[in-house]
Computed example of a mutant assay.
Amino acid sequence: MSSAQDKSWDRWSRFKKKGEMRSFTFPRINCPKAGVNKIDKGVLTLSKIGSMPVVMHRELPDRFELKTATIVRKADGWYVAISVEEDSIPAPKPIDEVKTAVGIDLGLKSFLVTSAGESVDVQQHYRRTQKHLARQQKRLSIKQAGSINHQKQKEKISCIHQRIGRKREIFHYLVAAQLVKQYDLIAVEDLSIKGLARTKYRRYM
């Protein structure tokens, strides 16, 4: 960003407490009164902030309509998540047309077990990183709170957690994609994931 854009951004974020602003959403894209005036060819233009280059994860498809843009702050920087809409996406298949179906049960010893007898092992991303994470947290504990080094170490630990989260996300996506390709209907157990996430078992998820 240029210095003028930095000033605009600072004025916009001044009303937020430190550490409070993690994400915000613009409901319209690529129209005159939208918060996101334009996103095209690797350049994002925000209302009252200006234009800035962005790294595009993939090209925006022509046939889709851009709906919302969410600016998200993560451990290693800022991200823009674009939601799109396309009318030709197929509707769910009627029950009488289902040819293959499977039930899945999430577990702790195995990530999941299917009614067909298939199982997927737990990847244990967190467990494999525990010792390294513990060393970094110990280094944080001996640094003076509020110092630059303390903040840098906090950011380093946040990046470790981010990498763990990304590995889990990719793993979940690959497993889900395989199941979707293999079966017309997938039945899952009605679990309270939020409740489970508050227990000691959350590190295995």
Rank of each mutant, 00 (worst) to 15 (best):
S119A: 08
I71N: 00
G19K: 01
D87Q: 10
M21Q: 12
Q123W: 13
D184F: 05
D105P: 00
E118P: 00
G19M: 00
P32C: 00
S47Y: 11
N30V: 03
R127K: 09
S2T: 10
A34E: 09
D6N: 11
H57N: 06
A197M: 08
G165E: 02
I186P: 02
G19N: 00
K131D: 09
F111Y: 13
K67E: 06
S88Y: 07
V43W: 14
F26A: 00
Q136T: 08
K38V: 15
T114F: 05
Q124E: 10
A176I: 03
D105T: 00
A116M: 09
G195N: 01
L60D: 10
I170R: 15
Q178C: 04
L112V: 04
R139W: 07
K152R: 11
P92C: 02
A81D: 09
R135M: 12
E85Y: 15
E118W: 04
K154Y: 08
A81I: 14
K131F: 12
P94I: 00
L108C: 04
S141A: 07
K138N: 12
A75V: 11
D121R: 11
Q151G: 08
Q124V: 09
A145H: 11
G107W: 01
F26R: 00
R11D: 15
P27C: 02
V72R: 10
S88E: 03
A134L: 15
Q123M: 15
V80K: 06
L191N: 06
K16H: 14
S88V: 04
R14L: 14
Q178D: 08
L106V: 10
L46Y: 02
G195Y: 03
A176F: 07
R139H: 15
G146L: 02
L44M: 08
T25Y: 11
F24P: 00
V102I: 14
K41S: 12
L112T: 04
N37F: 15
S110L: 15
Q144I: 11
K154P: 02
D96S: 07
R14G: 05
K33A: 09
K138F: 12
I186E: 01
I164R: 07
Y204Q: 11
H132R: 15
A69Q: 00
P27I: 03
A4N: 12
T45M: 03
A101T: 06
Q137V: 09
Q130K: 07
R168L: 05
D96M: 07
K138Q: 11
G50K: 06
A197R: 06
Q151M: 08
H132M: 12
W12C: 04
E59W: 11
D40W: 09
E20A: 08
A177S: 13
V36C: 10
Q182D: 06
R203A: 06
L179V: 04
K7F: 11
V122C: 09
